[in-house]
Design a protein around this nucleic acid. Structure first.
Lengths: 215, 215
DNA sequence: CATAAATTGTAATAAATAATTAAATTTAGG
DNA sequence: CCTAAATTTAATTATTTATTACAATTTATG
């Protein structure tokens, strides 16, 4: 196994591969070659092999990959065999929608707590999940062994929330506020910036070269 | 103005620059040099200049950029001066949360319609926005001049929804279903895959090199 | 047991993207 | 009118990422 740094593009693809393998397993497929995998899911077979090669040798020459085995290996590599506890900060529309988001469960994440600054909301529940006062974050994060924090507050509060979170020792943060955040130390911050995505659609529509009837 | 193809990385940065300029304008700053812009927002000044150069000459040598002018220029380039009408398909938690999402308004997008397959939901409203039957998509999209569609349905229905949407002539689609979709023709599809983002956090936490106390 | 077919793993190459540097140009201001 | 400041532009280098090609390995088969 190589020790060089793995690019995020590679690990992102591992997620995709795992998803494909889950489908194949559900269909009862036992083995699959990188070529068939690629053809079926519109991927590139060499890329698959290269991505996997960073982590070891999982295939059998002449045969391909054992679906069940590779699935387990990828699950392990991605750290998905252990449940991760999630706290969502911001109990607005987005935060509460995320609380029920099925994708969390599917990837073995469990939403354990919501946080908000609004006194009215504190103590209420979204499904099984209680809303706590953001002031108590450090305490509750420790008590409930929170691994991951999700920032779902308006942009102007996001930096401050991030600082509180990191002070509480959280190492992995997903940010939905449309603002770049500055992080210090060995913390993984993943920003999902819907504004950028939207504006890239807008840019596309504005291009006169597109046959979108708008010129 | 050059006609070469602009990379999406570039247009994404344009969104960021525009956001910075909005902040500066709000503060009453009149002009700013690429260098000051870069320092202040943790960007790279040469990159800023190069990105802008694809679209024309906006700066004044010896001065920098006039905040107000560059803001207008970027708004124009990104096609944000004209309101875009959005339809959201899937009136579940995510779809309804997105309906109120402030970022849409900020980027001059207006959510004009929701669609669902669930008879119970049809006819109801989320704020001002009515929920229609997905079967009527083509008709209503035409009537309401929908420019952009947002897919917020479970993964297994997403491909089918995409096909209906594109058949109705929609050219820009934002997909939240955690599945890669296949698109034909001159259509811009932007997938926001939260599962991948989550699993990349999980991968990070699983790395033994991190000082996250988990080894 | 030898050989053909299949498929991996990986080295080499190509392509895309980003960062750096340097020179030419323009403007503002004394 | 001269100088300093800052942009524009081009050229170069470095880095990252993706693709191609092929040797090595395994399995299946007669």
């Amino acid at each position: 196994m190589k020790v060089e740094k793995i690019s995020e593009l590679t690990t992102n693809r591992l997620s995709v591969y795992l998803r494909c393998l889950n489908e194949l397993a559900a269909e009862g497929v036992k083995t699959i070659s990188s070529d068939k995998l690629a053809k079926r899911f519109h991927l590139n077979s060499a890329q698959i092999r290269k991505d996997l090669a960073y982590f070891g040798e999982f295939g059998v020459r002449g045969v391909g990959y054992y679906v069940k085995d590779l699935r387990q290996d990828l699950t392990k590599i991605l750290g998905l065999e252990k449940e991760q506890c999630v706290a969502i900060i911001g109990a607005g529309r987005l935060g509460t929608a995320l609380t029920d988001y099925y994708g969390f469960k599917q990837s073995n994440f469990r939403v354990a707590a919501l946080f908000d600054a609004d006194k009215e909301k504190i103590g209420q529940k979204v499904g099984d999940v209680e809303i706590f006062d953001i002031k108590d974050f450090a305490e509750i994060a420790k008590r409930d062994k929170i691994d991951v924090a999700v920032i779902a507050v308006p942009a102007q509060f996001a930096q401050n929330v991030l600082e509180q979170i990191t002070k509480a020792g959280i190492k992995a943060v997903m940010n939905f506020a449309p603002t770049p955040l500055h992080v210090e130390g060995d913390i993984k911050l993943k920003t999902v910036d819907l504004t950028i995505s939207l504006e890239s659609l807008s840019y596309f529509l504005a291009q006169p070269t597109n046959s979108n009837g708008k010129k």
